[in-house]
């Protein structure tokens, strides 16, 4: 059908598919929302404010990378929040025990990989539902954290052993950009390159798009699925460590809202099984945190932010549904 119109005049919807339009659409939303907030408060557009938006965004931002990759394969990972908390706490604990920072981080990453492997094996190999499985896992992780910490956070202030971590995380570049923000941007770029230029990255899309076809075409579907969870949980650990270093405290309470927020980002970014990209995911993170920041600057109470985020997601899903079917 499409062939016949090759020579004819194409309308915009024919020339550009929804897939190509999506980043433009998200960018437009971001610009419009930013302009509206600038109208209310001129300080919104300041460098200072934007670096603060980025800083608040980076914990969820980094986790959303992994959540987005999970969503590409039609999975959810609800354990990311608790894995992030575990990562922060483990590094804090190891530093307290005198382990050098780099090795402590490495051990935490390995722990993240093990968490991912566990989730991956349960979901991919035993074919358990990812939503329920990772929901159960996050509950178990929460329990483990409480048992080992008695529910108290590990404070990093005024203690010599935490200085390497806190000073690294609180370093600023370009005036007011903290390490975490740089790390987030680097991770987005790295994962984008990974998805675009490696066989495993491409396989993630293929397995998400059609498992059966991927299997017939020689792709080791289960290995790909497991590696998705490993990637996701390693990113969660990194995010957790950066958060702990930045805030000067490692806490179990980090994990409460993160899974849902990261899923919201993935959905707003237009990620569906077999499709998605890091640019859109990044734009989606920005939109959500720009709205939160803007509302605070307008003096609107916290609680309304949740409604606003809900509304944005609602609209995003509506736009996607509109363009999916014919």
């Amino acid at each position: 059908m499409t062939v016949k119109n090759k020579t004819g005049v194409k309308s915009i919807t024919q020339k550009y598919t929804m897939k190509q339009m999506q980043p433009v659409l998200l960018l437009l939303i971001l610009i419009v929302v930013s302009l509206i907030f600038t109208g209310f408060n001129k300080n919104f557009m300041s460098w200072q404010n934007w670096s603060s938006i980025l800083l608040t965004a980076c914990t969820v931002g980094i986790i959303s990378i992994g959540q987005g990759v999970c969503k590409m394969a039609d999975y959810f990972d609800l354990s990311v929040g608790m894995v992030a908390s575990l990562g922060g706490l483990l590094v804090a604990f190891l530093l307290q025990a005198g382990v050098p920072l780099l090795i402590a981080v490495l051990i935490a990453i390995i722990m993240g990989a093990v968490c991912g492997l566990l989730a991956g094996v349960l979901v991919a190999y035993l074919k358990m539902n990812s939503f329920i499985t990772t929901f159960a896992l996050q509950s178990a992780y929460r329990g483990i954290i409480y048992i080992f910490t008695d529910g108290f956070p590990i404070s990093m202030t005024m203690k010599e052993c935490f200085v390497p971590l806190t000073s690294f995380c609180q370093k600023t570049f370009f005036g007011s950009v903290q390490t975490s923000v740089i790390a987030m941007i680097v991770l987005y770029v790295v994962v984008h390159l990974f998805l675009t230029y490696t066989k495993l990255g491409r396989s993630i899309f293929l397995v998400g798009g059609n498992q059966k076809c991927a299997h017939i075409c020689g792709i080791n579907v289960i290995a790909v699925q497991i590696s998705i969870f490993i990637l996701c949980d390693i990113l969660a650990v990194l995010s957790g460590i950066l958060y702990a270093g930045r805030m000067g405290t490692a806490t179990a309470f980090l994990g409460a809202t993160i899974p849902m927020e990261s899923i919201a980002v993935a959905i707003l970014g237009g990620t569906v099984a077999g499709h998605g990209n890091m640019l859109q995911t990044f734009l989606a993170v920005l939109i959500i945190f720009v709205v939160k920041n803007g509302l605070i600057m307008m003096g609107i109470p916290d609680f309304y932010q949740y409604i606003a985020v809900g509304l944005i997601m609602f609209i995003a899903v509506m736009v996607q549904v509109e363009h999916k079917g014919r």
Binding site: K199, R202, F205, L206, G209, N210, K212, C213, A214, I216, C217, G218, I219, G274, H275
Partner: peptide
């Protein structure tokens, strides 16, 4: 080439490019 083309044979939502290259990375 399996009997159920739409379910196993092809990635319907992926480009032809991806469909063609997936057997021979």
């Amino acid at each position: 080439a399996t009997e159920n083309r739409r379910e196993e044979g092809l990635m319907l939502r992926a480009s032809l490019k991806w469909n063609l290259s997936m057997t021979n990375f």
